[in-house]
Design a protein around this nucleic acid. Structure first.
Lengths: 132, 132, 132, 132
DNA sequence: GTGGTCTAGACCACT
DNA sequence: GTGGTCTAGACCACA
């Protein structure tokens, strides 16, 4: 279930992107399955369709979903060769996050515990991880 | 040495904040020591003084530095009691980062390896971690 | 109604902060309600938008208001767990004020009369005080 | 004993002013008594003489101390007819402080308790209050 | 339309 | 010389 935090700094459309990815990882939406249309999702989330549309476009660019004109939007199979640009960006973000965490007097182990916690709240449903 | 990535999405002032924290963790600036004045830093970074000032004010609010009007800006001792709000925010960011990473087909171990790498590129200079 | 005293030593942005808090305590702005946009408030107060923005950001940090990008700024519910740092600062200020007052030959009772006066010019509208 | 908080927002010279007033209220300096010279005070407080001088000038303007050329600086008797401007300013500050306090969910009684506490940490030594 | 960021330049208070 | 405040005006991301 996607929950939008209206008071969050993160823009709505990014929250939607994250929420859909999370749902896919949770196995709520399976590869090949249809996800709600822009309008449906908009009414589910009580949001402007334009905002949802922006999220869907971004997801399509990341090849997470595929839109078929006149039929709907479907979950893509996970790409086994991840986008190098995205990877680099993610690693950079992690590095910055670690700086902040160390500055808050956390240890490396504390940070890794967070990773474990986050991963376990998701893991087990996502097919591509079964074989790693 | 702080490097500003002008093409990054991250605003300059946040990059300055991160850069200074990183420098402190690296032991380039020691607690009690004076850091460059707003104007000096601005000319070092080829940046408007107001932008630097904004970063310094944020750092002061986080109790990373202390500014004394008319005298300069100084590195504070690291706060051993981290701000709960900041911690919560950081953990939330970590959780979102993990989702993105899992989606890029990374394993939990891959992510932890990033943490190790990031931490080791810093660790060893930061006094408060010696005793953890 | 917020009134800016241009001859006051207190910077404009602090006057705006105080004025908005006062208006909320007076019940002019209710929790959840939208307050004027940065630009509106700036034109109301005949002031630069940046100055208003600075006040709004400070108010958001104090969790008095919540800003939603692209939508506006809204009054938060009053925080029942006050910030310890703010409390300490306020008490310190009170202590200094009392010294000055005693030095002007006022009695403790005189000072308390001021407190009563100030509180009554506000009280009765602020929901959280009804239950204390 | 005057203590200067270098990390306080309040400028040094104001802290000196407050400190001297506090010492007089505490009976450490009595009316007619000589207080340390600018240079002595500066070396006591580890401060620049110019800063101390600024404080002394302000205190003289408020008729708290009297400087006699070639002899030194002396505590004045407390003025029984307080400066109306100062009174008004002080009352204004109190009003603002009360707004902040109410916003932090404090009751009127809480604020008055602070006043009592502050006054009692001083009271009893100051002659002009004995007769009120 | 909303707020956020950045620049440029002015003036002020403090040390 | 230090940081703090304020203005003016530009551009951008978000809804």
């Amino acid at each position: 279930m996607i929950i939008i935090d209206k008071s969050s700094m993160r823009p709505y459309y990014e929250q939607i992107i994250l929420g859909i990815k999370e749902d896919i990882l949770h196995g709520i939406y399976l590869p090949g399955e249809k996800i709600p249309s822009v309008r449906e999702m908009a009414s589910l989330l009580l949001m402007n369709p334009n905002t949802v549309s922006k999220a869907y476009k971004a997801l399509e660019e990341q090849e997470v979903i595929i839109t078929v004109r006149g039929k709907g939007t479907f979950v893509n199979k996970v790409n086994s060769q991840p986008d190098q640009r995205q990877l680099k960006q993610l690693k950079q973000n992690m590095s910055e996050l670690v700086i902040e965490a160390l500055y808050l007097n956390l240890s490396e182990a504390d940070i890794k515990a967070w990773v474990t916690e986050a991963a376990q709240s998701i893991g087990g449903h996502h097919e591509t991880n079964k074989f790693k």
